[in-house]
Design a protein around this nucleic acid. Sequence first.
DNA 1: TACTGATAGTCAGCATACTGAGCAATATCG
DNA 2: CGATATTGCTCAGTATGCTGACTATCAGTA
Lengths: 154, 154
Amino acid sequence: MKDNNDMPGHLARRFQQIAVAVFLAEVEDAGFDLTPVQYAALATIKGNPGLDQVTLAGLIAYDRTTITGVVDRLVQKGLAERRASSRDRRARELEITDEGRRTLRKITPAVESAQRIMLRGLTAREGEELMRLLRKAIAAGNELSRAPLRDVQA
Amino acid sequence: MKDNNDMPGHLARRFQQIAVAVFLAEVEDAGFDLTPVQYAALATIKGNPGLDQVTLAGLIAYDRTTITGVVDRLVQKGLAERRASSRDRRARELEITDEGRRTLRKITPAVESAQRIMLRGLTAREGEELMRLLRKAIAAGNELSRAPLRDVQA
DNA sequence: TACTGATAGTCAGCATACTGAGCAATATCG
DNA sequence: CGATATTGCTCAGTATGCTGACTATCAGTA
């Protein structure tokens, strides 16, 4: 009978659970109300102005049905805008607002602090190694989830 | 500007996402309909007959408000039973059913296969190292989530 | 050009997770 | 003993994530 602690799936769930909690706590301490998912989406919109929702989803490996709600909330908070595309009337072009830019800038220290805290039990070397191993495992399993990571075809 | 791939939080989310997808796929291939969360709960009930919901939640680090729904579904599927405790009328004692035991037994190969698949990009040594680092990071962050792991006080 | 297939987005429904509130029952302590 | 605090559980509300279905639109082709 295997112990939970020998199950990578269980460990993945626990680590993710802690990572989210730490992120939310740091961001709230900084005076903001933004989830990890919303942060990643907003940062990606900023880095890729005018991208459509499917592209955004692919860049951060979200399901396309999830992106709808995430963008809804970013728009509702005034951090992003959703416009009909002129090239493809099915698509929506996404833009970050000035308010979104300001929020991203001010929230960055909290986000970076969160990343440190979630690795606080590890040495710097171990933290790097953990990230390397996660990247490698993720790369090999990318196609196994419904929402794989997709590069932009620039 | 940090890349997503340098953010342990993002990597945690991606690995967990893949882990869940792999688990569900393997279990479905084996002809069962059980989520990772339901599996862990059921296995823990089997190993700790008569435990109450708070104890169960502590053993697998679930929130107590989440456990309610999970147990609901296990009961509804006929895999577990929820009884009023005679010692403490607030508490519910949980028991696995014969059907639950049968399911656990038959599902085990799929669960173990899933754990292998989610590490398929890593060598055996790397897989061990990943689990060690996750365990270490989790131990240091245990108290940071609302639902920390709790040992039984037997 | 008409047909077919693929694509962008949304929606309904289900299953985690969490916040915060509330109820019932137990434990503790003056 | 009685007031208070704590505990076990549930519920309402919100936010991911997913499956599957549907509409509108676009692309490729006969």
